[in-house]
Simulated scan of single mutants.
Amino acid sequence: MRYALAVEYDGGEFRGWQRLTASGTRDDQSSVQSTLENALSRLANAQVDTICAGRTDAGVHAQCQVVHFDSDAARDPRSWVLGTTANLPPAVCVRWCQPMPEDFHARFSARARRYRYRLVNRMVRPALNRQTLSWERRPLDADAMHRAAQALLGENDFNAFRSVQCQSPHGFRNLHSIRVVREGEQVYVDVQANAFLHHMVRNIVGSLLVIGRGDQPESWMAELLAGKDRTVAGPTAPPDGLVFVSPLYPAHWNLPAEVTLPEALSSPSR
């Protein structure tokens, strides 16, 4: 039986999503994947391997990471949720589980991914919720950041915003939406695309912060995109403010609403 699983985690406790040891070993507990697989394997009384919708880097969190796994163990969805969570550390939990057709794939069936970057914009660093917030002491013009970010919409070559470690064969991604809003002392950057390059969101945020501080004009974002040169863009924003909100899947998979894509965006894209 194939299952889809929603996982929530505090990435500050791990070196990232991806298992760092070879498949078949469960000694490494420094990645979210190996920690989750260890808990699932205990419940299944057999080795369980997982595939996720989108790998996250060290220090990056997830609100609803979706994974799939196969198991012959006679467990109902409630048992997978409660039993797995009971074997996980406090920084990880399973939110829901759903049986799926065998052709469902957590990564390849997804049509979009959503991220949110959160930061406190004030003179002093945050004390509460500091594990999941970044911090900027200089005043930010969130409206200018939002206007500048709209230059990134659509299918573009995002080479200016990917890391040198990125293994993608090309830099093209389709950015569906990007929004920058201020709520009191907090500034949020919400981004949705068909997929993301390595460090793409953090590099976009880093450049938007330069504009928000007034060090570059709003037009700079479009210039960076057209120039495709990572070396002239802004710095990579810290990982602690980044949350992988969820992947999004076509409605025919009948997954929960929080991971279901509106029909207008359900067709495959590069």
Rank of each mutant, 00 (worst) to 15 (best):
S71P: 02
A226W: 03
V124A: 14
L133K: 03
P139L: 08
R118N: 10
V66Q: 08
P238Y: 01
V164Q: 15
R95E: 12
V181C: 10
S266K: 01
R113C: 03
N121F: 06
A195N: 03
D49W: 11
P268Y: 09
S163V: 03
A264W: 08
S168Q: 13
R111C: 05
Q216M: 13
G241H: 03
V205Q: 07
R213G: 01
V164L: 14
S177N: 12
A160Y: 03
L82H: 14
P256F: 08
V92P: 00
N38R: 13
S41K: 05
F69W: 09
R42F: 01
F172L: 12
T21G: 11
G171E: 09
T35Y: 00
A73F: 05
Q33R: 07
P268S: 04
P238R: 04
N87C: 11
R114K: 14
G11I: 01
F108K: 13
D28I: 07
N45A: 13
E185T: 11
V7I: 13
E183D: 15
H252E: 15
C166R: 07
A237H: 09
M145W: 04
E258T: 15
F161N: 09
P247V: 08
P90I: 07
H176V: 10
S163T: 07
A58C: 07
E37Y: 08
A86F: 10
L5I: 15
P139N: 07
I211A: 07
Q192Y: 00
P250Q: 09
V189N: 05
V67R: 03
H105F: 10
P247M: 02
Q98E: 11
Y117L: 04
A142H: 10
L43R: 10
V67G: 00
C166L: 08
W96T: 08
I204T: 06
L209D: 05
R179L: 12
G154M: 02
S267T: 12
W17S: 04
L153P: 07
W80N: 10
H252I: 07
S109N: 04
A195K: 03
L224F: 12
S23Y: 02
A148Y: 02
Q29I: 05
V124Q: 13
P268H: 04
S246I: 02
V164S: 14
E185H: 11
D70S: 09
T260W: 04
V181Q: 12
W96P: 07
S163R: 02
A160C: 08
R179A: 06
G227L: 14
S109R: 00
C64T: 15
R230S: 05
F14C: 02
G12A: 11
G241M: 06
W135Y: 11
R78D: 15
G171R: 09
N156R: 15
R118C: 11
A233I: 06
